[in-house]
Structure formats: C-alpha cells, structure tokens
Amino acid sequence: MQASEAKAIEVTDLTVAYQEQPVLWDVDLDVPPGVLLSIVGPNGAGKTTLIKAILGLVRPAAGNVLIYDKPYEAQRRIVGYVPQRGTVDWDFPTNVLDVVMMGRYGALGWVRRPGRQERELAMQALEKVGMEAYTTRQISQLSGGQQQRVFLARALVQDATVYLMDEPFQGVDATTERAIVTLLQELREKGKTVVVVHHDLQTVTDYFDWVMLLNIRRIASGPVAETFTPENLRTTYGGRVAFMTK
C-alpha cells in the first residue's frame, strides 16, 4: 500500500474488554477511501464493539483509531452512523421527518434548532431512500424495512465521508435490501467509505468489495476476492460454514 494515500479508517492494536472478557483483541484494520467494506464474523465476535470503538462509544483498553489521520473527536463531522434498529424505542412520539433531521443535530451544535434548511436536507435524504411519502408518519407505524430506511436517511443528512452501519440488513424485506444495496453503491461511487456490519455470508461477494473477517481477533481483511476464502472462513467460524460453498 502506498504510504502517500491517506487511509479512511486506521485501527491499530485495538483491544476492548468488558469486565473480564476481552471482546476485541489486538485488532488492526486499514480501510482505504472509497471502499464498501463488510465486517463479518460469528455472534459475539465483537463486530458491533468494533464499530462502537471506532466511534469512540466504548473506551478501548489499548490501541488507537484514526479517521483520515486524525482521532475521531476531530473528525466527527465527516462520520455518519447507523445504529442497530433495535436499540431505540419505535413507540417514541415523533415522526419520520423529525428523526431524519436528528442527523443534522451534530452540525447544528448546542441549543440551535433545526430550521428550513435542515427540513429540506431531510426531505432530499428521504427521497433517496424512497420514503418521501412518509414524512409525517408516526415512526411506530413503519415496517422494519421502512424503519431501516429512515435510519439510513438520517445518516445521509449527516453528509459524511465515512459511514459506519450496524446490521442495516437485519430483518428488512427484499425490496428494502435491494434499495439499501443500491444506495451503498451510490455512496461508494461518490468516493465515500462505507463500513457495514453484516451477517449474511451468502451476499458478501455480491454486495461488497472489501471484507473483514472478525472473531475477537482480526482473521483477515482486504478485497473480497482475496480475503473471502473458505480457509479464512473456517478460521473465523471454526468449521461451521459447510453451507458456504456457493
């Protein structure tokens, strides 16, 4: 790899421990700009933790994370985040447009309220995910796939360079899944870097161009063609991937 090219994300020696158990151990990851990377690994492999550590949401026991050569705190404005859909209460009294506008809160800073400009940006993002007809819909009345699109739209209005998404394909319908894939590819076309926690091994080759195999340690990472090998998968999943000979 050329030293001159900046890395979008650079994780070095990252170790995270919850109480006694190390969840991530000595993980390194370099993500070049403009790739669509999926993180795969078995349950409890630390995928979500890795995303959270990159975002500074969990404190590492050791190691370092850089985004375009600077720590996360300095690069917040260029990072967009899509948390797992199940982490929020969808019965919260608010509507679709309002949730999407929350993506602008960081840029707005303290106390300032969202105005017309934020509303317009939110509308554009909703159009991109095909949800423009649902702006005033209460969020509890959305299907799983629609909820996921709203979360994606919220990340889009962040207008970030690097996107981190936690299981965006979890429990969504086939139409939404296709729409999300198209959107991810559009983002890559624009030179954005997208990191996605993913659980469906069948689709890795179709959807992504880079992959990271993770099971507490980094097993491998790199372009899908070189990295997504049966051997690496066996190491990651411990021989439990007989179905993966697609």
Binding site: E73, R76, Y81, M102, Y105, G106, R154
Partner: peptide, 13 residues
C-alpha cells in the same frame, strides 16, 4: 435525542 437514541447522540459528540 438523548431519550430517543443515546448511542447516536454520543456519536454526534
């Protein structure tokens, strides 16, 4: 934002 989505709020700083 804190009440609706704590993790997202934290990611925004």
């Amino acid at each position: 934002l804190l009440v609706f989505d704590e993790g997202f709020a934290a990611s925004l700083g």
